[in-house]
Each structure stands twice: as structure tokens, then as C-alpha cells.
Design a binder for these strands. Structure first.
Length: 587
RNA sequence: GGCCUCGUAGUUCAAUGGAUAGAAUAGAAGUUUCCUAAACUUUAGAUCCAGGUUCGAUUCCUGGCGAGGCUACCA
């Protein structure tokens, strides 16, 4: 890392000495593999100072650097590209450093606290594929921020109250016959989801009956008896009616038991859980505050609004005419609650991009309220997950259930492992763990290798595939290393005489890994880790194929290769830990 | 209608404004007396269209065309 600094300093010196260029931003990039060299400096921007041809300018700087920087063993010039070649000695010292001191990720920040809100489920139905992307992404971001020096609070805001839960409750009351998870053998969240579907079935029927009777469709939606009953139930909930509250507690309990199983299998966890039932009234005082200070305004009917037209948005309601709050009000209050609880420097919302507008407004409102933490808000806006047949629609039953999906990928890992027949001596428990590690790993990797911000296609058939750019590919490279280390008697680093191409590329990739960890944090994007780790695993497989490690002729070569392999293994494992994916020792 | 994303090999994804646009998968052809072939090698195949800025554009700007999202006193 500091070598690059040194290189930049010397390059600046070169520009100053040769062309009297004052301080500029110096950038090096990795040399394109199609060309000879390690780092490349592009000289085009400096031609107007040097007043020479690109080739000559690059050559002059190259000559300067070769003389001044001992690690630069040679250079070549292609058009305006100065390709610096570094000595093997330098790369060997990098390998030695990593091998002896372990993987080091320099902290990006100090004493920075960040609250990451993710998952945030509704408690009326089980989790689906979209939630999996959210959870896996949120968890990974937490790990990545931690690795960069942040103090992270993993936070879940459970939406446990509202019309949607009342629908499930009502349907259960009417048609449940006292069914419980125990009596039915159905996982709690799925059972509650079943009644949510049941509600909708009857509700749709009522609507169409009303519409046939000549009622307007929108009106019918509101006037359907079931909807009236639901609203009444919500009303009773707010009034604290005992019977409703106890049913609510019972059914939410079922859901939490179910979620725990799903979260556990998915390997995600939280440090702090908020429940909307506790927080939904928050924010009203802040709305009043804003009204008094004049940043909000009131309409004739008494509703409170914020005018964001000067920011290019429109007017947004913050409180209904009847004094009740809306989503935005609650989020204002919850942001304040978070700040009171944690005093965080940053707070991140892992929420789908259909809420881009909402979070833009939220941040503007917090700024208008002069909240000191407003600038620390970041909406990690991830794209929707599409299926090959199109969008997921719960109404049309095309949602991919989280539990079923996990079962499927683990099952695929099992059958493929059995087919290969390499694990016959493993016991039942080891095998079960292995299938989970492979299957859940494959699923997570599939979701994380894509840029978080982009919408992505989820092909179920492809997700259970375990070859190519997949978690098992990387896990396989790791188990090869683990197997080597079991067979090796020592993994102490020894200086080799020189480096072959494959060894060098492993060192280069490992040297670059901390940059990927930084970039992943800066961009809130785990896929940068996934890509880095994949490249490394691929390079290792090639190295492994081309060269004998334990059978190397020279003992020093053998020791070097073992130590190098060990460092690769540690890097792969580190990267996977940031993605929330386990590594098997055998497969 | 207004606002916001996104258009890259058959398919799914990469590419701080840099060189000859990378992978994976599907296709074709190979590699195992040798540390795990879930691997490795070779091969064919792409920047939606038209302008502009730039020494240089997949990347930035404008206009088309196409896909998606938001545009609720729902959360």
C-alpha cells in the first residue's frame, strides 16, 4: 500500500522535475493483462505540459522512475501508456508480508458508529426471495463495514402492526378452527401467511359480488364487509382491546418462531430489534416542532405537509387531517429514536429501490428539521429480483418462498455431492453441515455477486448450479488448500528464488484484496468482494493445475508454495466471511 | 403526463473516462498412471439507435426507441 504512495510521490517528482507540473492527482491502474507490466501510468493528460509525443513523455517518466524507485525493474511504453514492471523481489516481499503478518485491512475510519437497518419484514406472511436479497445484502454490508473499522449495529425494524396483520387475524378467527403451528405441523409464519391468503380469497369474492351489484370498484374495496371488519379490528387494537391484543400477540409469536428458523438457516442476526407497534406513534412531536418553526405547513383541513417543490420534488403529507401519522411520520420518529439510542454517525437503510423517493424525502425533511444526523442517512437502494417468467407477484402465486428455496438449494448440493462420491467417509452431521454450507453459500453468492443497486434475474435452475462463478467453485479451491495444509508438515514462509506467472498473479490479487474491501464499503457493494474472491480462486485453480506444490523439486519452492496457498486460503475465507458465507474444510 | 433507474456475447453478469470490452453458462474440441476433474486448456460469440463533449466514451451530455419503478391522507 505504502509502496503505491511512494510510487505516486516519485511520479509527482518526475512531473515536476521534467515538466514543472505542479501538484496533480496521480493515478495508477493495474496493467491490462494483455500487456507486459504491473502498474500503468497514463500520460495523455500531461502532454500539453511536456509538449512531446506520448511515447517520449512516457519513456522519460519511466526512465526517471526506474532510476529513483528500486522496486521498478523495468518499463515499457505503448502509445501513451507507461507500463511499469516491478521486480520479483518486490512481489516476494509482499507475499512474505501477507504470509507472516496475516491479512491486514487498514481501517477506513475510526470511532464511527453506523446503524444498518435491514430485513424489516411484515409479520403477516413468510419471507420470500426478495427478503433473502435484502437480508443477505444487509448482513454482508454490516460485515464489510466492520472490516473497515466501523462500529456496526445490525438493526431490524419489524412491522408487527397494521391492516395486513389484522387481515390474517380476522381470517384465522373466522376459518381457522383454532389451528396452530403445533396442531397443523405448519411453520408459524407460513400458517399466518396461509390465513392472509385465505382472507384475500374471500375479500376478492366480496369485491366482485359488490361490483356485479353495480358498485364502483374502488368503493367496493372499501365497502366490502371483510374490509370493514378489518378496520374495526385495527381500531380495537389501537384501543387496546384485550381479546384482539392477545390474538395479535399469539399470531405474531408464531411468526417470530418461524422467522427465527429462516434467519438462522440464512445465517443472519441482529443487535437491536425495533417493533413498529412501539414506534408507530413517534414522530408527531417532531412534526409539531417543524410546524412551529415554519418548515412545515398546515392545510385548511388540518393536515400537515412539507413543501419540497424547491428541491425538485412535490408536496408531501406528514400528518393526516385526523391527526394520525403516516409512514413518513413514523420514519422521522424512528430516525430520532435511533439517534437517541446510539448517537450514530451514519445510518443505513437497506430497502428496495421502489422507495427511492421516500428516502429522498425523509432525508430532506430531517435536514429541514435541522437534525444533526440528517447527512448520515444513506438509503442502500437495491434492485428488485425478477424471475425468468417476469416479476414476482404474490397475488399470482409467483413468489419464491425463502424456506422452500433454501431447502431446494441444499437438496441440490446434497445430490451433487453424493454423485461425486468424495465424501463417503464423512458422518451424518458433517454431511448435513456440508450440504448447508454449499447450498446456502451458493444461494447467497448468487445474490451477492451482482451489483446491489441493480435489478437482477433469479433463475432457480441456475442458482442450484454449482460450477463456474459460484460459491462452491470458491469453496472447492479453499478445500484444496485445506487438504494441502493437512498434508504439509509446515507452512512457514520461505523465500523462493523467483516467481512463476501463476504465483505472481496470486500475490498481485492478494495484494489488491484490501482495496476491494475498501471499495465494497465505500460503494456499499458486496459484489466487489465476490468478484475479488472469485478471481483469486480462479487463479489458484490454475496455479494448482500448472504446478506441483507438495511435490516441488526444491524444498524452498515447496515451502513457499505452501505458505502462499495458505495465504490464499485465508484470503478466500476472509472474503467469504464478509459475504456471510461459510467455508467447508472438505467437499 | 411528470420524476427516477436500466439497455453489453444466445443467456446471466463484469469493466475509478483509457490500450485489443472481461467472466460464467449454453455450443464446439481437448486434459486424469500426478497434491480433490465441483477443476484445467483451446475455440466461436456483444456495447439499443443518432448526435455531442474529449487526445480517448460501454462509461459523461442531448434526443429517440425499449424495459422497470415511483407518482396514496398504504407500509
Amino acid at each position: 500500500m505504502d509502496f503505491i504512495q511512494e510510487l505516486k510521490t516519485q511520479t509527482q517528482n518526475a512531473l515536476t522535475d521534467l515538466y514543472t507540473i505542479e501538484k496533480v492527482e496521480i493515478n495508477f491502474e493495474q496493467t491490462n493483462p494483455n500487456f507486459e507490466g504491473d502498474f500503468t501510468f497514463v500520460v495523455f493528460p500531461y502532454l500539453r505540459y511536456s509538449k512531446k509525443k506520448p511515447e517520449d513523455t512516457a519513456a522519460e517518466i519511466g526512465e526517471y522512475l526506474r532510476e529513483k524507485v528500486k522496486e521498478v525493474s523495468n518499463y515499457n511504453v505503448v502509445k501513451g501508456f507507461l507500463n511499469l514492471e516491478l521486480s520479483d523481489t518486490y512481489w516476494i516481499s509482499v507475499a512474505s508480508e501477507i504470509s507472516n503478518n496475516g491479512l491486514r485491512i487498514p481501517a477506513l475510519v475510526k470511532n464511527q458508529k453506523v446503524v444498518v437497518e435491514y430485513s424489516s419484514p411484515n409479520t403477516n406472511k413468510p419471507l420470500h426471495l426478495g427478503h433473502i436479497r435484502n437480508n443477505v445484502l444487509g448482513y454482508s454490508i454490516c460485515k464489510i463495514l466492520e472490516a473497515n473499522g466501523y462500529d456496526v449495529i445490525k438493526n431490524n425494524l419489524v412491522n408487527d402492526r397494521g391492516v395486513h396483520i389484522c387481515k390474517s387475524m380476522l381470517a384465522w378467527q373466522k376459518w381457522g378452527n383454532g389451528e396452530t403451528p403445533e396442531s397443523s405441523g405448519i411453520k408459524g409464519d407460513h400458517l399466518v401467511g396461509k390465513y392472509y391468503v385465505e382472507f384475500d380469497k374471500h375479500y376478492q369474492k366480496q369485491i366482485s359480488e359488490l361490483v356485479e351489484g353495480g358498485t364502483d370498484k374502488d368503493l367496493a374495496k372499501n365497502e366490502a364487509p371483510l374490509m370493514k371488519e378489518t378496520r374495526q379490528m385495527l381500531q380495537q387494537w389501537e384501543e387496546g382491546k384485550q381479546e384482539v391484543l392477545s390474538l395479535w400477540k399469539k399470531m405474531n409469536g408464531w411468526v417470530y418462531d418461524g422467522f427465527d428458523v429462516t434467519y438462522n438457516r440464512l445465517g443472519v442476526s441482529f443487535d437491536k430489534i425495533y417493533y413498529v407497534s412501539d414506534t408507530y406513534l413517534l414522530g408527531k412531536e417532531l412534526v409539531q416542532e417543524g410546524l412551529e418553526s415554519g418548515v412545515f405547513f398546515q392545510k385548511d383541513d388540518g393536515s400537515v405537509w412539507v413543501d419540497l417543490t424547491s428541491e425538485g420534488l412535490d408536496e408531501k403529507i406528514l400528518q393526516r387531517a385526523d391527526g394520525t401519522s403516516v409512514y413518513m411520520t413514523q420514519d422521522i420518529g424512528t430516525a430520532d429514536l435511533k439517534f437517541n439510542d446510539f448517537g450514530m454517525d451514519k445510518f443505513i437503510y437497506v430497502v428496495g429501490n421502489e422507495q427511492d423517493y421516500h428516502f429522498k424525502v425523509l432525508q430532506l425533511v430531517l435536514k429541514k428539521l435541522n437534525k444533526p444526523y440528517a447527512d448520515g442517512l444513506y438509503h442502500l437502494s437495491y434492485g428488485m429480483v425478477d424471475l425468468p417468467e417476469g416479476k414476482m407477484k404474490s397475488r399470482e402465486g409467483t413468489v419464491v418462498d425463502a424456506d422452500e428455496l433454501m431447502e431446494e438449494v441444499v437438496g441440490a448440493a446434497k445430490s451433487q455431492t453424493e454423485e461425486l462420491g468424495k465424501t463417503e467417509d464423512m458422518n451424518e452431521e458433517e454431511l448435513t453441515n456440508l450440504y448447508e454450507t454449499l447450498g446456502i453459500g451458493a444461494l447467497k453468492y448468487y445474490l451477492l455477486k451482482v451489483d446491489a443497486k441493480k435489478r437482477m434475474m433469479f433463475d432457480p435452475n441456475e442458482s442450484i448450479q454449482l460450477q463456474g462463478d459460484t460459491a462452491p467453485f470458491i469453496q472447492y479451491a479453499y478445500t484444496r488448500i485445506a487438504s494441502l495444509l493437512r498434508a504439509a508438515d509446515s507452512s512457514d514462509f520461505e523465500m523462493p528464488d523467483n516467481l512463476n506467472e501463476e504465483e505472481k498473479s496470486l500475490i498481485v490479487l492478494m495484494n489488491n484484496y484490501p482495496n476491494a474491501v475498501h471499495a465494497a464499503a465505500t460503494h456499499y457493494n458486496p459484489s466487489e468482494i465476490a468478484n475479488a474472491v472469485y478471481e483469486l480462486a480462479k487463479a489458484f485453480n490454475k496455479f494448482y493445475h500448472e504446478h506441483s506444490i507438495l511435490g516441488a523439486k526444491e524444498n524452498s519452492t515447496k515451502q513457499f508454495r505452501i505458505a502462499l496457498s495458505k495465504a490464499v486460503g485465508e484470503t478466500l475465507k476472509h472474503g467469504f466471511s464478509l459475504l456471510g458465507i461459510d467455508m467447508p474444510e472438505r467437499m
